[in-house]
């Protein structure tokens, strides 16, 4: 499984704006790069990223071939209640990687 770095504050106050940082280990193959044998490496990029907060989608992004390897996405959320934040990345091969983080809101 590919690795992901996720930064979510463990605790927040209700109504606080929190910064989320995510980075997924992924080559983001453009489909234009030849390998050592001269053949093109098939395109394989992350196409879609979705973040849900207690089951509700709160942030999503479509990604395209010019985006670097190991895509880094940072965004903000309003801390509304304690719960689970889920991150999912889906690539060209239809594989989805899911990671979760817990947040405690007081």
């Amino acid at each position: 499984m590919a690795r992901a770095l996720i930064n979510v504050p463990a605790k927040a106050k209700k109504g606080e704006i929190i910064e989320i940082k995510t980075m997924l280990s992924h080559p983001m193959e453009t489909g234009f790069r030849p390998s050592d044998d001269g053949k093109l490496v098939p395109r394989n990029i992350i196409k879609r990223f979705v973040c849900t907060y207690d089951g509700e989608a709160v942030f999503s992004a479509d990604l395209f071939p010019a985006i670097s390897a190991n895509p880094f996405l940072s965004f903000t959320l309003v801390a509304t209640n304690s719960g689970v934040i889920t991150f999912s990345w889906t690539d060209d091969n239809g594989q989805t990687q899911v990671q979760t983080a817990k947040i405690e809101v007081a």
Binding site: R3, L5, N7, K21, M23, S25, A69, N70, F72, S74
Partner: peptide
């Protein structure tokens, strides 16, 4: 920032 340094992915590996 370890949360944005992509070298940290290699550290996890």
């Amino acid at each position: 920032d370890d949360a944005s340094n992509p070298g940290m992915l290699a550290v996890l590996d």
